[in-house]
Design a protein around this nucleic acid. Structure first.
Lengths: 331, 331
DNA sequence: TTGTAAGCGTTATCAA
DNA sequence: TTGATAACGCTTACAA
């Protein structure tokens, strides 16, 4: 029922192959021939068939974004960025949420690649740290890029922000506000970002000549509940912190809730800061001071690295920003 | 490089067509033949090629979920449900966020269907109310189902909850708590749900013999900011409400923030209720009393309706639930 | 710069 | 219940 290349070629009075050339923007097509073909295609409303292109061309014009499911906010924004970049080149993005604990993860990813003839893969944490996943991709010869990998692999393009630096900046910001005892709520240990954020916190303390106190660091798992618990522990300390830096907004929201529950005023008795600038930051009370990661841009950059495909892999570091809101106040 | 049907047929000592039959679970294959083929396929690690299947079979084993981008929470959960159901039958879901204001929306959707040979479409609001979209689908003969349509179309399967009833239940709950002046924050007028929720609110007031007061209803757009503004207007009334029912959690969070800002205690001076039970409900302070929509189940049910494809279109109504939390308290 | 012919890996048709 | 053969709509050789 659909218009095919054959229809277009007949209408334009050229061969099928020539239409194909125009479609693929190949060189060596006379300008007027190209114009004629394009006109015919437009008139007929021709849409190339994905399946046929994939079958014959061994490529699908599809890339897949593999992600775990930490925060819907994060996933949505990364996806939006990737999608936007894909649209520029006529690619489509397949969003593939994966369970990082799944036993047959490799098999799932592998079969997706084989069956769909994917042109590329974008890996996000914690899959960036999975040697088995990366090896499966390499084995199939699929191009892939990473978002926020734990460590830079010169051979694999990546987009990221300097997490330790961002964390240090927030800590320094709190120190600048006059705080000396700053609590820190750490993220899920399985994510490299957790360790980097802690590292930045410690570095900023060092640089300010403030001694590190182990009791001021509480574990967490990047979610509300663990943030609440961590705050309870911190606020129960004989000498409680005057500020708490939770290394994710969800945990910061938990810190806030605990403070409210205990009747501790924010920012009167304790300042609170988060990390990520999710939608959450603006809808809790008081609104969170936090670090804005350019999540959407990270997705866009990653797709760009994948689709452009330069000879030497490129690493792209993006800027972050501290967004000051009501949970911290100058002394 | 990949294993093909031909390889399997050779290994199993049958024809290509027979392998295809097994693959498609067709009838008329001897049990032992089937077993032999399946064994061979498993041994070789055979994965059918999507593109070839789509090209030859005029079907792609793919369905598309078309959604606007209101809340990431909503989108994620609907998607999870749809994906889960798809996986059961070996289908894949394509998530297609669309701008409802886009001029060439029809064209985008149409070409996606033509090019990808989609087997079905799931429509969510506000696309369920777009006659042009639905007509474009019908014109192409694509099966489609709807989630939470404004009105039931007997010819189109749909999954939904009774929004008016849910809203009435929440209003009745607040009345049961002793409230007589209950503010209502309405959602975006473009969504049918907004009107249904208002309708339920009014119905419950009627049933309790409480006169409707126009000044207690404020407009909103399902987001935090409009919730904040609405609350400011309500709390500034000469006779302010003792409870505020915001018809979405995001707006309820805005109501909360305004109350905090104005020093109005919750639930001491004003009770607050929301609608949706997004992740938000549990991370604000105090936690929101709200209505739990089985979002994931709505997605699952929709995909089920699409894939099962009964003769007579089926309408599937799912249950909702009031989740009482700290923002309301018994008198 | 353009065209011809041979696939790509599956399903549909029709015969056995 | 099975199999041969022709599509499916496009791209990749390879010629011209």
């Amino acid at each position: 029922v659909s218009i095919t290349i054959g229809d277009v070629s007949r209408a334009a009075g050229v061969s099928i192959k020539t239409v194909s050339r125009v479609l693929n923007k190949e060189k060596y097509v006379a300008a007027d021939t190209r114009a004629r073909v394009e006109a015919a295609a437009a008139t007929l409303g021709f849409r190339p068939n994905f399946a046929a292109r994939a079958l014959a061309g061994h490529r699908s014009f599809q890339i897949v974004l593999i992600y775990d499911n930490p925060s819907p906010y994060f996933a949505q924004n990364i996806q939006a960025g990737v999608r936007e970049r894909c649209a520029v080149d006529g690619y489509r993005m397949i969003a593939q949420p994966c369970d990082s604990g799944s036993a047959n993860l490799i098999d799932e990813i592998g079969s997706l690649i084989d069956q769909a003839q994917l042109d590329g893969v974008i890996l996000t944490p914690p899959f960036t740290e999975r040697a088995d996943v990366r090896q499966a991709l390499a084995a199939r010869g699929v191009r892939y890029v990473m978002i926020s990998p734990a460590s830079i692999d010169a051979a694999v393009p990546a987009s990221f922000i300097d997490q330790a630096e961002a964390s240090a900046a927030m800590t320094a910001y709190l120190i600048g506000l006059g705080h000396r005892r700053i609590g820190f709520v750490m993220g899920d240990e399985r994510y490299a970002s957790s360790h980097k954020r802690l590292e930045g916190y410690r570095r900023a303390l060092d640089e300010a000549g403030i001694a590190f106190a182990a009791e001021l660091v509480q574990p967490g798992e990047y979610n509300f509940e663990t943030g609440s618990l961590a705050a309870a522990a911190l606020l129960a300390l004989p000498m409680p912190p005057t500020a708490i830096f939770a290394s994710s907004d969800d945990m910061a929201a938990g810190v806030l809730a605990t403070a409210h529950r205990l009747g501790v005023s924010v920012p009167g008795q304790v300042s609170v800061a988060g990390f990520d600038d999710t939608d959450l930051a603006a809808v809790v009370w008081p609104p969170l001071t936090t670090i804005r990661q350019p999540v959407r841009d990270l997705g866009y950059a990653a797709a760009d690295l994948l689709l452009v495909g330069a000879e030497e892999p490129e690493q792209r570091q993006l800027p972050f920003e501290i967004v000051a809101r009501g949970t911290t106040a100058a002394v």
